[in-house]
Design a protein around this nucleic acid. Sequence first.
DNA 1: CTCTCGATGGACT
DNA 2: GTCCATCGAGAGA
Length: 226
Amino acid sequence: VTNSSRRSLPVDFYRRPTLDVARELVGKILRVAWGGRQRGGRVVEVEAYLGRDDPASHAARGLTPRSAVMFGPAGVAYVYFIYGMYHCLNVVTEPAGRAGAVLVRALEPLANGNSPLPPCDGPGKLCRTLGIDLAWNGLPLKPAPDVPRALWLEDAPPPARIETTTRVGIRRAAERPYRFVDPDSRVLSESVGRSAGASRSGRPSAGEGRGGRDCGSTREGKRSHR
DNA sequence: CTCTCGATGGACT
DNA sequence: GTCCATCGAGAGA
């Protein structure tokens, strides 16, 4: 925990322009502690969602019950429920009073760390895998061993390359280059990214697109709530 | 490979 | 009532 506290990104990291935070978030380590278990992975795909001037943002139409967290202090989680069955994890940015958030779209397992990581190649799958739901909304991004649930980000060297593309799965402001990925990772939410984003045409001949998804020890099977 | 569509529920007009 | 910052299955090329 002491180690985590030392590496944990300070609030000042988040209290900055959203696009800066988004770009620099690529390569950082996300950790999630819950139910006596800690999991995590390396951030390889994010998207920036700005405030009122970004039509695709939940904050575009001002402060509402759902978007309130985006207008609050930086360095907390913004989690929302979407499509009736998924959750998405964001990191709140900008000084309080100004809205901004960074959507975490994909993680890749740590080479050799604590707990291995099941599929996290997409924002919905990521939350399902890590067990993140609305109960996490508004939580500060910092290590907290004595609470039911905690999540935070730890510093790590930036990737060799960072690619900028358009955001995935949105209609409005779809042309804005607010998506940042580590192009050398094979865990990107690729199928979605290509069909909706249509940003890159580079066709690597080497096996990159497919290949087995990295899966550690899988847990957290299916939920059959009815 | 690409495209289309259903599931499913909350936020917002 | 309409719109989703999704995912995965199914059909067609």
